[in-house]
């Protein structure tokens, strides 16, 4: 490009950049409409985290306090640092008369979890998923060891894994 062509194109491109930031400034100065800052502790009542936020791992329970986990231990195997321990037992299935695994307790060590999500990818039944809660600070480390299945919950009878 020529000497004066350089100057002209520089002016043009600089002005097109300033247009964008200038629009941000004037919109935000007068209306605060495009501000994306979240004033966290003030909006704690209305704060809604977005769906993909990785706060913790939770287990899905329906309205009858029933979950989809049939204790296949895929998540326990997938977890790279042993954050998940599954306690299971076998019971006779009344319909078929065969022994079948059932979940006693799904133990989740939040203090070891790195939120990598491999367990959720590994789960064939979508029994566990991301929860959006991030208020995890406690006074005692033992509070971070959680039991994901709610007390008294049971496996959805006859639930079939769509992927199995």
């Amino acid at each position: 490009m020529s000497y004066f062509g350089d100057i002209a194109s520089a002016t043009k491109t600089l002005i097109s950049g300033m247009k964008i930031t200038g629009r941000y400034f004037f919109v935000n100065f007068f209306t605060r409409k495009e501000i994306i800052t979240v004033e966290y502790p003030d909006n704690i009542d209305t704060l809604k985290m977005f769906d993909r936020f990785r706060g913790e791992i939770v287990m899905y329970h329906d309205e009858n306090n029933q979950h989809r986990c049939d204790a296949c231990t895929m998540c326990e195997i997938a977890c790279p640092n042993g954050s998940i321990e599954i306690i299971w037992d076998k019971a006779i299935n009344e319909e078929t008369g065969k022994p079948k695994k059932f979940l006693e307790e799904h133990i989740y060590h939040l203090e070891m979890c790195t939120m990598c999500g491999l367990c959720i990818e590994a789960c064939p039944a979508d029994a566990i998923m991301w929860g959006q809660n991030f208020h995890h600070a406690t006074q005692d480390r033992s509070h971070l060891t959680k039991s994901l299945n709610q007390p008294g919950s049971s496996f959805i009878p006859g639930y079939k894994n769509p992927k199995k």
Binding site: T21, F25, F29, E34, I36
Partner: peptide
């Protein structure tokens, strides 16, 4: 303050 408004912050 101005920097914040230019960058969509507060």
């Amino acid at each position: 303050r101005a920097a914040a408004f230019f960058q969509q912050r507060l």
